[in-house]
Design a protein around this nucleic acid. Structure first.
Lengths: 224, 224
DNA sequence: ACACGACTGGAACGCTGTTCCAATCTAGAG
DNA sequence: CTCTAGATTGGAACAGCGTTCCAGTCGTGT
């Protein structure tokens, strides 16, 4: 049988999971989820796809590792010596911005939770709620709800963002959606009809923050 | 050149987008997102994949149509003559249960919003908030936040559900996650350490409802 | 000098979404 | 009734994917 010549020279710099994850994040940021392929990754790292599999079990693990990397970086960045409400706002905004910057991570978070980053979020939000005087009895439920809200709403926003990621701009897309809403039957959709105009001009980041504030207000109010 | 024999007899019952979407939903419910393939769909409908493409542009459109079908069914089911808070709880639970029953739809919702069902959600939640006396000025933001919360938290839950969907049961998975949390450094994760025990025994549905209530409380409180 | 395990890279496999097109049906015109 | 034009079908073909497999190469310890 014919021997395989193995013509191309071997790499000198070692491959590693870190280097692979780093390259994967770059590809994901550049072209979204479907831009990450093992062939492309191999080309970018100047290797073969088989070599990658020696360091990473499969694509799912690679995506999870990339998501973990991106999220945990943000969570640890937030300092903890502010007022509880401000600290919560800061952490929530950190998550929001991270997911906004890496939308593929948002999808991943709503797909495979219990990530390494999750305990960090729980710890951060939970301890601040405790500082706000939320009683032990409802602390776990409140924290779960808050974490779920932040991840859910941020992911939701990232999904919207992807719509006008390529080419078309935000205002145009939202404008056309607003037109659609305005065309709906005013008898069946009076409310939608009325607020359609506000759709194109709202600020996603601020709206997200409003939601977090409302949530904290609810928790604090129910505390009594 | 050789003619193609086209041996198998033609179907008598017409193909249609509705029939295709219906079959797709069955496949998605049975085996999740990756169980839906055009080949499998063609086999189930006793046709070829090409025929499906005459009715449906591509897989994305098919997924969007299936999601719309499942979600809008639930939204229109909720009657509207209850107390505002109860109506909101009922609608939220409807969405929660729908996504819980069809987890693939949850992923889809956090991926491609502005679905046909979205105006219905906006209308439902928005009009109830209005009935609660939320002033016009913050009505749009509050409704957006509430819709985002419901979709986000429900999707989040569905993602968790998929972890113990196949084989392993919920209690076992949550138990092992709780153990992992308990093993974390108590100095760095005091809060997580403390609430880990509550993780396996909490009720997702109830926790979701708690979150919605907290949110509404926050909105009502901020109304003043 | 040698051997052995860690590591590499590219070929190959089975599957996917999608495109293409001959074959076939249906409806209406003449 | 015949003919034809368009709507619809089904399956072959294509490019590309994740994954597996394995011959080859390197670095290290003896």
């Amino acid at each position: 049988m014919a021997t395989r010549p193995q013509q191309s020279p071997r790499r000198t710099d070692a491959l590693s999971k870190e280097r692979i994850v780093e390259a994967a994040i770059e590809m994901l940021d550049a072209g979204g989820e479907k831009a990450l392929t093992f062939r492309g990754l191999a080309a970018r790292l100047a290797t073969g796809s088989g070599a990658i599999y020696w360091h990473v079990a499969n694509k799912d693990e690679l995506l999870a590792a990339a998501t973990d990397d991106v999220i945990s970086r943000v969570v640890t960045d937030v300092a903890g010596d502010a007022e509880p409400r401000d600290a919560i706002r800061a952490m929530a905004l950190g998550v929001f911005d991270a997911i906004d910057m890496h939308p593929w991570a948002g999808v991943q978070l709503s797909r495979r939770p219990w990530l390494v980053a999750l305990p960090q979020l729980f710890e951060g939000f939970g301890s601040q709620l405790e500082a706000l005087g939320v009683p032990e009895r409802v602390l776990f439920d409140s924290t779960s709800a808050l974490v779920g809200h932040v991840l859910g709403a941020a992911g939701q926003n990232a999904a919207n963002g992807r719509l006008y990621a390529e080419g078309t701009d935000r205002a145009a897309v939202l404008g056309s959606v607003a037109e659609e809403w305005a065309r709906l039957d005013p008898a069946r959709f009076p409310f939608v009809h009325r607020v359609a105009a506000q759709l194109p001009e709202h600020d996603d980041r601020e709206q997200f923050l409003t939601g977090v504030d409302l949530f904290v207000t609810g928790i604090v109010t129910a505390r009594a």
